[in-house]
Amino acid sequence: MGRKNDIASAVIMLGVALFLAGCPKQALEPVGAGGPQPQAQPQQESPAMTPEQPAMQMEPYGGASGQGAVRLDQARQDFQDADIMFEYDSFSLTAEAKKVLAEKARFLNAHPGMKVLIEGHCDERGTAEYNLALGERRAKAAQEYLVFLGVNAQRLSTISYGEEKPLDPEANEAAWAKNRRAHFVITEG
């Protein structure tokens, strides 16, 4: 009997393990469309159980309270809110920009289903045509650095808006500094 119980608990534990392993992947789907669905497919195989998925990561999504999804929502929001900034007429990545990109690379590597559009923006100074090209180079510089940090290039697309979509429409140094940026939008996953 005791042995049967042991087997039963082992099966249950395996089920839980499979469930937990499958969870991160599941939890990505419903974001923005309500909470997680932990009970949805507990019997599912464990395609997500791969060496790159450290067990630690599973924890936040394990709870049935929906807290995991809230955290992911917040993480996505943080990812999209963090622009990288540029110097005037430059598409070189500053040390600060590289730090932000390293965080983004970690996040993207942890969420391999995610696709991102990188928007390149300029301040209003200078001319429209040149700034379209400069914005493109800013977006591409960010893309190349993320690829260097291990993100698959296929997951990253770029677009330049030049000086056409300033974050701050004012004409002063503070506004211009805010507008010289690359902005990141999660388009998939």
Binding site: E129, L132, A133, E136, S157, T158, S160
Partner: peptide, 8 residues
Amino acid sequence: GARGLNTS
């Protein structure tokens, strides 16, 4: 309409 710039 290639992806990227088709400008000026």
